[in-house]
Amino acid sequence: MTARVQHFELNGQRIECDAHPSKLVVDYLREDAGLTGTNIGCGEGVCGTCSILVDNCSARSCLLLLGQIEETSVLTIEGLAGHTLGPVIQDAFSRHFAAQCGYCTPAMLLIALEYLLDGTIENHADKTVIRDRLASVMCRCTGYQPIIDAIHDVAKSLALGPASQKLRTTP
């Protein structure tokens, strides 16, 4: 089998990758790229623990093949701090005790970023909307409440909405 070189961006870095395009993205991240922050919960696309952002859209990296991320921009938890909103969300999670065992936390933070950047949402501080969006990742420890509070806190402090458009373009 001849390896085909693929290109994509990973946490702001241009990557040339010769791993097989049928390799799961989560395995590539954890084994080849050494990025173990992305955790595997079910391996079947249900729990959302392995969520990453591909071109700002959340995706289950346990269902995604390397071939599918060619020429995309991938953000994992390790790259979150490099995003304008990253440290703000991280800080809010800490202050609100929005993690217990930490296993779903990377996914929750990335979902939070995706949510906060979503320009189609009228009021990012609406807890019902936050709850609905968070339903894509399972948490077994917190009961979700502190996570919702953390995201609500960030949304409120940023008074997001129109501003999210600007943030979207400022990586």
């Binding site: 173990t36 922050g37 938890i77 979150l80 991280q90 800490s94 990377p106």
Partner: peptide, 11 residues
Amino acid sequence: IARFARGEGNY
């Protein structure tokens, strides 16, 4: 929690 939020959990 800050460590988990940086993706530095160590399972």
